[in-house]
Design a binder for these strands. Structure first.
Length: 367
DNA sequence: TCTGGGGTCCTAGGACCC
DNA sequence: TCTGGGGTCCTAGGACCC
């Protein structure tokens, strides 16, 4: 059976959609501040070491992009409007968008505030019917939030996400199984979900520049160089992706971190910050009625070398005091500190599970 | 130009147990 | 006196995503 046939078979049992809000944070600010509309809007950390989170399309024409240092953005676009993100506001709209998806899809997988997968298989197998539903979703999002989004529709997650990227903003793209090679082949390998800078460089050094090269590369070579991800990447290059949607899942870790505007050398100052961060993660934990079994801290040095140290607790806890004590202990005893100071401190929690209180709340008949 | 903050997943080595 | 094989858990680091 050729890959093409296996994909075709796949197309008949699954239709996956991917919805991506266009330049989301910036678009929300333009919605809430009419005077921002038509102007370059850049959302991100405003401190000395901030980076761009989202740039409006007007700002992108100046070369401003996500993850660009703010200092660079200001140079490229001195007349832009710069603002900090307002996550609570974005969350409201994100929740609304998800409620729209739920009207049409039994299974949703949230990727971030501005992205989600949804499953329209139940509306198939006819591609016309599925197409119609996806169009309706896109229209409802625009009508109810006054924001545009891009939607991709395909037999699997990977292609659906690619579809939503292909004609952004305000895009809609359905990828038919017989177009897969035509669309994928010419793209650079970095377009594949899971191929970042490091893997892209390795592939390029092997002479694999485009998705077509990856599709046709000897599997032994890919496995020798990349291990099991080599196999997975070649499958994606062929347009094959059987990964199911995860549905709504509980988070496995909670963390808070801060990058200082200036490197810190004073231990007392670090301890104060660790206490503050520990308090934050502990209240997040308590709010969700969760407990943790691992406390972790993270330190980044001025040269960007980053280390973490963690400790396992003998019993799960949600106590701010225990978390703080453990985090401080890790900082004092396990982190090498010299005169150079540090640029970032973080506190994280792992081994998360439901507290007894939450289990009882969810299953009251246990009582 | 100088690199945020919140996550997930994978890998590799070591400890420990049978 | 030399040294297994498998499994699990833990730690640390790193790649990647938005």
């Amino acid at each position: 059976m050729s890959p093409r046939h296996s994909v075709l078979a796949d197309a008949h049992d699954r239709w996956i959609g991917h919805l991506d809000m266009d330049a989301f944070f910036a678009a929300v600010e333009q919605l809430d501040h009419p005077e921002y509309r038509g102007r370059p809007v850049i959302i991100g950390g405003l401190g000395l070491r901030g980076v761009v989170s989202t740039a409006s399309y007007e700002a992108r024409s100046y070369g401003v992009r996500s993850a660009l240092p703010m200092a660079v953005a200001r140079r490229l676009c001195p007349d832009g409007i710069y603002a900090s993100p307002r996550f609570l506001r974005y969350k409201e709209i994100s929740d609304h968008v998800r409620s729209i998806l739920r009207r049409f899809s039994p299974t949703i997988e949230t990727i971030s505030l501005d992205e989600a997968f949804f499953d329209l298989s139940a509306h198939g197998p006819s591609s016309e019917d599925v197409h119609q539903i996806a169009r309706t979703i896109k229209r409802d999002v625009q009508a109810e939030t006054k924001l545009t989004c891009s939607v991709g529709l395909a037999p699997n997650r990977f292609l659906a996400k690619l579809g939503s990227e292909l004609d952004k903003p305000d895009g809609f793209r359905m990828i038919d199984p017989d177009q897969i090679h035509e669309i994928l082949d010419p793209l650079p390998v970095g377009e594949i979900w899971g191929v970042g800078e490091v893997t892209a460089k390795r592939l390029i050094s092997l002479g694999i520049l485009r998705i077509k090269d990856l599709r046709l590369a000897p599997l032994e070579l890919l496995i020798r160089e990349l291990g099991s991800t080599g196999r997975r990447l070649q499958q994606l290059a062929m347009g094959i992706d059987d990964t199911p949607l995860s549905g709504e899942v509980d988070s496995k870790s909670i963390s808070r971190e801060t990058t200082y505007a200036f490197d810190v050398t004073d231990l007392a100052e670090m301890e104060e910050e660790v206490s503050r961060l520990a308090g934050h993660v502990a209240s997040s934990l308590q709010r969700e009625k969760l407990i943790c079994r691992v406390v972790r801290i993270k330190v980044r040095y001025p040269n960007f070398k980053t280390i973490s140290r963690q400790v396992q607790l003998s019993v799960g806890t949600d106590s701010a005091q225990i978390i703080e004590t453990q985090a401080l202990e890790l900082l004092r005893k396990r982190v090498p500190l010299d005169e150079g100071g540090i640029r970032l401190l973080g506190v994280g929690l792992g081994g998360i599970s439901e507290s007894i209180a939450r289990q009882l709340a969810l299953f009251p008949d246990w009582l």
